[in-house]
Computed example of a mutant assay.
Amino acid sequence: NAPFADARIDAGGIVEMMKLTDGTEIVPLLVLDCSGSSARIASRTAPAFEDWSAWLPCDRTHTQRLSATGAPPPYTQVDGQGSGWTATWPLGGADVRLTCAAGGEGTPFRAGRRVEAWRGNCIALGAAAGLIEPLHPTALTVLLRSLAQLIQLWPAERRAPVEAKAFNRFTANAMTGARNFVIAQKAAGRGVGAFGDEPGDTMLPDVVEAKRTLFAARGRLPMFDDEPFEEEDWAAMFDAMGQVPRRYDARADALPLATIQQHFADHRARIIAQVRALPPYAHAMAELAAA
């Protein structure tokens, strides 16, 4: 149970021995680096890092706990300001405010990912594998999917290059997909004043541009391997940020307009009825806290 102190690592990234502060030495089959952005072992086994600051320049986070004012809202409020954004949500009878900005006070971080999350017998998980601005809870989603992949690829010996290659391909796709979602939202938000002060001459990643242009043209979205967000998430995000397709999908002509209108009217009525049957958010949270 003693803290980690040091490790002996060969040129191929194999952690041959781990030493704890009490002198205990461990010869590991596999090392899971969950040490956060410091990546205490993975930064030595796989130091190559892909930097994303050209698209995501925020590099500081700062958290405050504030006195709650009024009934808590059932959502997180996100506001763009200056070189970053703030998110406020109710928690435990107070409001928590997270500020993410480029420069200034707060905890530093670097947006990007480790090029090889699995190298040798060390696997970086969570923030040790990479970081994205916490505009969405992408970190937990990517972590859970990475763990599911790791279970499927669990090696029988220290050196497992085939499994490592498959895991690295998945992790790269998942983290890049999460990055693209945040980039797309910030780019779309600039059009409606939600986010600002980002380099105007920075080209969007090809995948983001492909999604944005096709959605703007006809409301469709191309999807790619291992993306952590579904097509519905992308459509809802673009719609919420004020992106309206120039024309509808031609397949809608297969049904009479009156049928489509009635379908959505019925769907809307069901949603309203379900929401009205729910208790107020504050009451529901109080009941959960008392349980």
Rank of each mutant, 00 (worst) to 15 (best):
Q149P: 04
A210H: 15
G23K: 00
E16I: 02
A71K: 05
D6K: 01
V27N: 13
Q77C: 02
I272G: 08
R220D: 15
A2C: 15
S83W: 05
R270I: 08
L32I: 10
L125S: 01
A42E: 10
I271V: 10
D22T: 11
A129Q: 10
D225K: 14
W89L: 14
L66C: 11
V27I: 11
A194H: 11
R276F: 02
K165S: 15
A117L: 12
P72G: 03
P222R: 03
C100L: 06
A250D: 07
L147T: 12
Q262V: 04
F181R: 03
R247E: 11
T141D: 04
P161F: 06
R251V: 07
A94Y: 07
R247A: 08
P74E: 00
G112T: 04
I123V: 15
R246W: 07
I123S: 02
L131K: 05
A277Y: 14
D266S: 13
A102C: 14
E232Q: 11
P47C: 14
G93L: 08
I271G: 07
R145A: 04
A7H: 01
Q152C: 07
T107I: 15
L221C: 04
A188K: 00
P57K: 02
L125T: 02
F167N: 11
G130S: 10
H263P: 15
Y281M: 10
E227S: 05
R169S: 13
D33F: 01
P256L: 06
T176F: 06
G219E: 10
T86E: 05
P279D: 11
A286W: 11
E157W: 02
R218N: 12
A252Y: 02
G82P: 10
V162A: 14
W85Q: 00
S37K: 13
I260A: 15
G193F: 10
E230K: 10
H283A: 12
D51S: 04
R114P: 03
G193I: 02
M175N: 03
P222L: 08
W52L: 09
P73F: 13
A216Y: 04
V208D: 01
S146M: 12
G242Q: 01
E198L: 09
E209S: 09
I9F: 03
A164D: 03
L288Q: 08
E198Q: 14
A258S: 14
G196R: 07
W85N: 00
P3Q: 09
E25L: 04
P28F: 01
P205H: 14
R276Y: 02
T176V: 08
Q185M: 13
G84T: 11
P256T: 06
F195Y: 11
F167G: 13
V142Q: 01
A235Y: 02
M18T: 05
G200C: 09
L255S: 06
L135H: 01
L32T: 06
N1C: 07
P90M: 07
A71Y: 11
W89A: 12
E50R: 14
F170I: 08
W85V: 00
I9C: 06
I123C: 09
D239G: 06
A216N: 07
V192I: 14
D197H: 08
G13M: 00
R251E: 04
L20A: 09
F181V: 10
R276D: 07
R145W: 01
P228H: 06
D253S: 13
S83H: 03
M223G: 09
A124P: 03
A252P: 01
L30S: 06
